[in-house]
Computed example of a mutant assay.
Amino acid sequence: MMFSAKFIRWLLMLSPLVLIAGPAIADSSYPTKPVRLVVPYPPGGSADVLARMLGQRLDTVLGQPVVVDNRPGAGTAIGARVVAQSPADGYTLLIGTVSSHAMNPALMKDIGYDPVRDFTAIAPLATIPFVLLASTKLPISSLQELIDLAKRQPGKLNFSSAGSGTSNHLAGEILQSAAKIRLAHIPFKGSAPALSALVGGQVDLMFDLVVTTVPHVKSGAVRALAITAHQRSPLLPEVPTVSEAGMPALELSAWFGFFGPRDLPVDVRDKLAREVGKILEIPEFQDRLRRLGASVLAMSPVQFANFVASERDRWAQVIKASSIIAN
């Protein structure tokens, strides 16, 4: 079949428009250069450790360096904004958390991004539960005994946190709502001083991540009442879950996930999700997570996106009901 020169010129003019109008499709050779993995926290914390564990594995399977870039500040807003405003090419990714994608957007009116609309949810990574801790000065040894005591002395007991609007503060608010008790909130500048105050007997209660809780529970410096997970932790197998203690509404955790900017090409998203899923199945990787008190969180990209949206709505309701204002 013969085509005229005029018809061929018309096809050549049309082809760029077809490419522009079509869906975002990435080069199958992705990645062809180093990938930046933004962590919205300082070095040394759980999110940073998890990012470096994941980055080391991704280096090998992607064939390109994965460079961890710590961008702390404004809660988690600075690092999250960096990724939200980056090109959707798969070369700038984020370790997001319950704080960056659920709590802080509800706490900060001008956070600068929408946790659902401005990101592509790639894969969940892990979840770390909290432990409800009590001072050894309190005459209690269970969650129910705490509730009974708080009802007899409304507003007299207190709990410490890493600051107003932090995850352990919000956990305390959920406890008060679910148990219909009233506690005084004592905010500190970070979890370490808040935990020190509990160990020293200056405060009565605190929710803290299981990994930092273990040595203090084992030494008898504090008393563990319940863990906010669906199953008991191998790090503290003697501590009952909140469901076992009769308070399933207290099931909550610090979760971590893998995100890209909005409109990330589907094939890039799926490639990253597939490789991350394989990494999370490696026994050695799972063992390292367990030593952090974490467990694998497995979902498809679509399921993870729905999970993030539900977490955003859940924490927005908690924050609105409690009239919490971030520090």
Rank of each mutant, 00 (worst) to 15 (best):
T32H: 07
P301N: 10
A162F: 11
A21S: 09
I174T: 15
S191N: 11
L12T: 10
E173L: 13
S164N: 06
A123I: 08
V199H: 02
R36Q: 15
E275Y: 12
A245Y: 04
S167C: 00
A178H: 06
I319M: 06
W10Y: 14
S161P: 09
I140E: 04
T92K: 09
S99H: 04
G73Y: 10
A224C: 13
G260N: 08
V211L: 02
I324A: 14
D208Q: 13
G73F: 14
M108L: 14
T92V: 14
L225H: 03
A77M: 12
K151T: 06
T228L: 04
Q144I: 10
I25M: 14
V266G: 01
A179D: 10
F207P: 06
G260A: 02
R9F: 04
R314T: 09
D208H: 06
D48Q: 00
K320L: 08
Q317N: 12
E173H: 12
F256N: 14
G90S: 01
S86T: 12
Q56P: 00
G163L: 02
S196L: 05
L143Q: 02
A126C: 08
R9P: 00
L235Y: 11
R223K: 15
K151L: 02
L12Q: 10
Y41A: 11
A245I: 14
P40M: 05
P248S: 01
V116P: 03
L157V: 08
W255Y: 11
R152H: 12
P42K: 00
V39D: 07
L170A: 01
K218E: 15
P187A: 09
L250R: 00
A47F: 04
H216N: 14
G45H: 07
F130R: 01
A254T: 07
V211H: 05
V18I: 15
F119T: 10
L236V: 13
G22A: 12
R232H: 03
G172R: 01
V131N: 02
I20V: 15
A51H: 03
L58S: 03
P105V: 12
R232E: 09
D313N: 11
Y91W: 05
V35L: 13
G277C: 02
A298F: 06
T212S: 06
I325C: 00
P193L: 05
S142R: 10
S161G: 09
A305D: 12
V222T: 13
S160E: 02
P43L: 03
A121I: 11
F207D: 01
R182M: 07
L93G: 04
V68W: 14
F119H: 05
L133E: 01
V38H: 03
V49C: 04
L11Q: 13
R52C: 04
V296E: 04
G201M: 08
P72M: 06
